[in-house]
């Protein structure tokens, strides 16, 4: 999709996702949701990444999780999970203007999860400038009219919920990227088998075979780290083990994303650098991973300083 052509997404896609119950995934059963874990959210995100959906799915799965604890949550939550309302979501501060808020363009409101509570600004109070992003989605630079923010959740349980929500959002980004890696790999394999040069398929060349094999290895590794971080979250929740697992997942998925994106485009030849092909869109999407995924150095240093890196990563204490 070309940069200038984009809207926020398709209402049909959005409705179909809502009808499947996607936005109920992370809502607790007590609030009428599915109470699912990171594994299920990851499966959804992987499909989003595989099919390059541009709709703000991740943000709204997590928005529903947060809204579920909000005051007068009922109607607002029901409207979101039914697909009738969409929100932009941010975890940073609400200093104005708020830059690059995913999901904010043409949204019904913006949610900001700050340290001491959840803030909501309704559409009427927002001024949003659309910002096309590297991954073909449209985010927004947001200004909220004075008095526009209302705090709709807070309390003793809030910090833990906010931490879980931020972790889930990051995990879903990782899974989404894995889905794009899968698709780029599959598409590249199909292409090298079908593209013929020098009298046969280019897959006959060993240099092509080895490059594809390196993509397979990187994709397998990316799958492993994604699963590790996801299962660690479900087993132990946020904490030192998860910090280690998600930092590792971000780094290794970034590595795989780069390798698969570069090789994928290279093996498509000229087609790879034209906007005609999926691989070009996948390349852009994969480039967008690193700048979104957040830093990992603090977690890396904490892991080594504590000596935790000398212990198994997969046998989780809980």
């Amino acid at each position: 999709m070309l940069v200038h052509a984009g809207g926020w997404g398709s209402i049909n896609v959005w409705q179909a996702l809502a009808d499947l119950g996607c936005f109920l995934l992370a809502v607790p059963e007590s609030a009428g949701g599915l109470g699912a874990g990171a594994v299920e959210a990851g499966i959804l995100a992987r499909a989003v990444g595989r099919h390059l959906l541009i709709e703000p799915v991740r943000e709204n799965v997590v928005a529903a999780m947060l809204l579920a604890v909000g005051e007068d949550a009922g109607d607002r939550l029901a409207a979101l999970t039914a697909g009738n309302k969409r929100y932009g979501l941010a975890f940073a501060s609400c200093e104005q203007p708020m830059r690059t808020i995913r999901g904010a363009w043409e949204a019904d409101g913006v949610l900001v999860a700050v340290d001491d509570g959840l803030l909501l600004a309704d559409r009427a109070t927002l001024s949003v400038r659309p910002v096309p992003l590297l991954d073909d989605t449209i985010a927004g630079d947001v200004e909220v009219a004075s008095g526009g923010f209302r705090q709709i959740a807070s309390g003793a349980d809030w910090p833990a919920l906010r931490q879980r929500a931020a972790a889930l959002l990051r995990l879903m980004l990782v899974s989404e990227t894995l889905g794009t890696i899968d698709a780029a790999l599959d598409g590249t394999i199909a292409y090298v088998r079908e593209r013929s040069q020098f009298g046969g398929p280019i897959s006959a060349f060993q240099t092509v075979q080895h490059r594809v094999a390196e993509m397979v290895v990187a994709a397998r590794e990316a799958e492993a780290v994604t699963l590790l971080a996801t299962l660690t979250f479900d087993a132990a929740g946020p904490g030192a083990a998860f910090d280690r697992a998600i930092a590792g997942a971000v780094r290794r998925v970034a590595h795989a994303a780069e390798l698969v994106a570069d090789s994928g485009v290279q093996l498509h030849g000229g087609m790879g650098v034209s906007d005609e092909t999926k691989i070009a869109a996948q390349f852009r999407k994969l480039q967008a991973f690193r700048p979104q995924a957040g830093g990992t150095d603090d977690a890396a240093l904490a892991m080594v300083s504590s000596g935790m890196h000398r212990q198994s990563a997969v046998l989780v204490e809980g």
């Binding site: 590794e221 492993a224 780290v225 699963l227 590790l228 280690r244 697992a245 930092a247 590792g248 780094r251 290794r252 890396a300 892991m303 080594v304 890196h309 198994s312 990563a313 997969v314």
Partner: peptide, 9 residues
């Protein structure tokens, strides 16, 4: 370490 963690998984 992160590479070893990935390999372990």
């Amino acid at each position: 370490t992160f590479e070893i963690d990935a390999f372990e998984m």
